[in-house]
Computed example of a mutant assay.
Amino acid sequence: MDTQFGIMIRTLRVGLNLYLRQVAPLLQMDTAQLSKIEKGQRQLKREQIPLLASILKADQNDLLTLWLADQLYEIVKDEKLGSKAIQVIEEKIKKRKH
């Protein structure tokens, strides 16, 4: 079960020629945990995203957006009205910005 966030961090890590065993300790986790995050089998803690962005030389907001999108998808993926619920949320967010 790949996630957008997991795919992105794996792509960035490989692009920098970094191994799991190099990145995982910087996040205070073992390589198996990071591997599971990349495969979408486990979620990274939100508070770790800034550090990960720094390690991978990535935009923190881009990583956070994908992380949030994966969280929302996980909640609504099996719901018949999932898409409609996402639209309602989008409208609510738009109204808060005005």
Rank of each mutant, 00 (worst) to 15 (best):
Met1Ser: 10
Asp2His: 14
Asp2Trp: 09
Gly6Gln: 05
Ile7Leu: 14
Met8Ala: 09
Ile9Trp: 01
Ile9Leu: 06
Thr11Asn: 08
Thr11Pro: 00
Leu18Cys: 01
Tyr19Lys: 13
Leu20Met: 11
Leu20His: 03
Arg21Cys: 08
Val23His: 06
Pro25Lys: 00
Pro25Glu: 01
Leu27Cys: 07
Asp30Phe: 02
Ala32Cys: 02
Ser35Asn: 15
Glu38Cys: 00
Glu38Gly: 03
Lys39Ala: 09
Gly40Val: 04
Gly40Asn: 06
Gln41Met: 12
Arg42Lys: 11
Arg42Cys: 09
Arg42Ser: 13
Gln43Ile: 06
Arg46Ile: 09
Ile49Glu: 01
Leu51Thr: 12
Leu56Thr: 04
Lys57Val: 10
Lys57Tyr: 02
Ala58Asn: 02
Ala58Gly: 06
Ala58Cys: 08
Gln60Tyr: 01
Thr65Phe: 14
Leu68Ala: 15
Gln71Arg: 14
Gln71Met: 11
Gln71Phe: 01
Glu79Trp: 05
Lys80Pro: 05
Lys80Thr: 10
Lys80Trp: 05
Leu81Arg: 09
Leu81Glu: 15
Ser83Tyr: 02
Ser83Pro: 00
Lys84Gln: 09
Val88Trp: 09
Ile89Ser: 10
Ile89Trp: 06
Glu90Leu: 15
Lys92Ser: 08
Lys92Leu: 12
Lys94Val: 15
Lys94Glu: 06
Lys97Met: 07
His98Arg: 15
